[in-house]
Simulated assay, not measured.
Amino acid sequence: MAKIVFWSPDPGRGNTSNTLAIGTMIGQDYDIRTLITQTQFRRPNLENAFMKAKELQFRNLVNTTTSGMDNLERLFKSKRLSADSISDHTISLEAGRLDLLMGTKKSEAHENFPSIAGAIFDEADRYYQAVILDIHSGNNSSVSEQLIQDADIVVITLSQDTSVIESYVEQKDWPDNLQEKSKIILLGQYDKYSKYNVTNIKRNFKIDDPIYGLPYCSEFRDAINDKDVLNWFRRARNAGKRHPSYSFFQEVRKISKDLLIQIGVNTEIKRIERGVS
């Protein structure tokens, strides 16, 4: 149905953690088939964040020489890749709703990898209603260029640093095909008390794209370090106003809903009743 790409012009802005938060919330709040994956080389931070909840499956994959993505590449080369085969090579995080595709174990992209990755996610798009991709930051990745080209919407991770905002407005170091894409801006580790809040940034820098702020959350960061994001979301996402992570979940839920609306999901019909997992 739709490919949602998370990209940042610079590494270290929280692109992977933003992908984790939005992807996990969609998988737990909505009855749609969602795939989450990353196309990083050497840094599987996204998939590691789910490891504690699915230790056996991860252990089995770690002990093999290939991964889900690499297996799908072999299927593509042998002309046996299909929409149904995608889910067969994933780890189910939420049954029928959220699947994790392990990234490649290759240390770098070979010449044909961008087009192969594009073909794999095109096929995944036929089975899943949302394909969520955490891609390499910056403007020097042929894989990222391909996936931005194929994306239905690009979530751009920035910060409240004015130099970062100015570079975005001036389109410095943008991938060539980003201009024509539907985009939203997500400010990571957001401080709502800053002078440079969402409203002022949008007005002062004359930005037309939707902008959201996702506040820093100590418990979320701990869950990532504990490799237990899935279980933490299950326990805490519906907590009341006195919970220390309440505002974080409120914003993640708002962003997730608005993003799904933009890709054509009826969020009123697909929303899972609170407390049902």
Rank of each mutant, 00 (worst) to 15 (best):
D31H: 08
I211D: 02
P175C: 04
K3V: 12
D161A: 01
Y193N: 13
T34P: 05
D122T: 02
I269Y: 11
T19E: 10
Q38M: 09
L20V: 05
D208A: 14
S247A: 13
S8M: 07
I224P: 11
D226C: 04
T24A: 06
G213D: 05
T24M: 05
D173L: 14
I132D: 09
R13T: 07
L214C: 10
R234K: 15
G96I: 02
K183R: 06
E170I: 01
I22G: 09
K257P: 08
A21W: 05
S247D: 03
P114M: 01
K206H: 09
I272H: 01
I91P: 08
I132R: 01
E47W: 06
K172H: 14
Q250M: 11
S85V: 07
S159A: 04
Q40E: 15
A117R: 00
V164F: 12
T24P: 12
V164T: 15
I269F: 09
P175Y: 07
I120L: 05
D209K: 02
L98P: 06
L230W: 04
I207A: 10
L259M: 08
V164W: 07
S245P: 03
V5A: 04
D258N: 14
A95L: 08
F41L: 02
K227E: 14
K254H: 14
S115Y: 06
Q146W: 09
D191T: 03
E170H: 11
D161C: 00
D152S: 10
P11E: 11
L147Y: 11
H136T: 15
G275N: 03
T162P: 14
E111Q: 12
M1C: 02
S167G: 14
R42Y: 13
A109G: 01
G103L: 05
E111N: 11
N204H: 08
R59I: 10
I255P: 13
N238I: 14
T199N: 08
Q250A: 11
D258K: 12
S245C: 00
K183H: 03
H89N: 15
Q28M: 13
V229S: 05
D122H: 09
I135M: 12
W232R: 03
Y190Q: 01
R33M: 08
F249G: 11
S159N: 06
I211N: 00
E108I: 02
S245H: 08
H136P: 11
I211E: 02
D173S: 14
L100K: 02
R42C: 08
I116Y: 07
N197E: 00
R74E: 15
T90S: 06
S67Y: 11
T39I: 11
E111I: 13
I32S: 06
I132C: 10
H89Q: 06
Q38E: 15
T16G: 00
L20P: 07
A124K: 08
I120R: 00
R33F: 13
E219C: 07
M1I: 01
Y246C: 12
I116K: 07
R97W: 06
F58E: 10
K52P: 12
R80C: 05
G264T: 10
A130E: 03
T157H: 09
S87K: 10
D29H: 02
Y216T: 04
A49H: 03
A117T: 04
